[in-house]
């Protein structure tokens, strides 16, 4: 079901795009940005749930959501940069609030992994990572607001792409957005499953090694650890 929707976007959406070839990237760039944004916020919500429940399942979800969102953020930067090159002739445009915000957000979230890896105690690691995710998740929309304001002050006529769009564009955009959301969820699910599998494998290996003490422990904390 997810795969069908996923395929639909990639085959249907480009067919509909008749505003010139490069405009097609709009269907990738903007939904990607929106989904990544919500992904960061979702990561913060999961992190808050982790801190409340002390259940490492939420930490895992927060981790995976942020992981995929950062990948999407890189996608946003790349597609945005290509778009900027095509429409303005420069690889980087400081006037485009979306791009600038995503650069800042990407720089912030890039520290998520160094932070995690440099805290040795597992429990502390996931708690600190959750605090980071909440702070960063709150920062994302605020940063967007601030940067957008800064740009609209200096350049009041910032290109707003979605105003008075023909229905075909709106439709494709919505389908693309839904597709991107599904893609995001699929990727998260996949990543989560693979993390689970890795963890199970490690537990099984340990069982084979015959360390019964550690086995008993794992039984209690079967939830994923990172």
């Amino acid at each position: 079901m997810l795969t069908i929707a996923f395929a639909l976007v990639f085959f249907y959406a480009p067919n509909d795009a008749d505003q010139g070839f490069i405009f097609k990237i709009f269907y990738v760039h903007v939904p990607m940005a929106i989904v990544a944004l919500f992904g960061f916020v979702a990561g913060a919500v999961f992190a808050a749930l982790h801190l409340r429940s002390q259940d490492s399942k939420w930490d895992m979800r927060s981790y995976v959501t942020i992981h995929i969102s950062v990948i999407l953020a890189v996608g946003v930067l790349v597609t945005g940069s290509i778009w900027a090159r095509a429409s303005w002739g420069h690889w980087w445009i400081w006037d485009e609030p979306m791009l600038v915000s995503f650069l800042i957000v990407f720089l912030l979230y890039a520290t998520y992994w160094p932070l995690r890896f440099s805290i040795e105690d597992k429990e502390k690691q996931s708690r600190y990572a959750s605090v980071f995710a909440i702070v960063a998740g709150a920062f994302v929309p605020l940063n967007f607001a601030a940067v957008r304001m800064a740009e609209s002050f200096t350049h009041p006529q910032t290109a707003t792409t979605t105003t008075s769009a023909p229905p075909s564009v709106t439709l494709t955009f919505l389908v693309a957005l839904a597709g991107m959301t599904l893609l995001f969820i699929t990727l998260c699910k996949y990543e989560m499953a693979s993390k689970h599998a890795t963890f199970r494998l490690r537990a099984l290996r340990r069982r084979l090694a015959g360390d019964e003490d550690e086995l008993a422990l794992n039984g209690r904390s079967a939830a994923p650890q990172l």
Partner: peptide, 26 residues
């Protein structure tokens, strides 16, 4: 956030600078 990390001196500016961009901007 950074005090428990091994690489405190690196983590602090990496987290603080993006977070402080809006402060700097305003």
């Amino acid at each position: 956030l950074a005090i428990q990390t091994r690489a405190r001196d690196l983590i602090v500016p990496l987290i603080a600078l993006p977070l402080l961009v809006p402060v700097l901007l305003a």
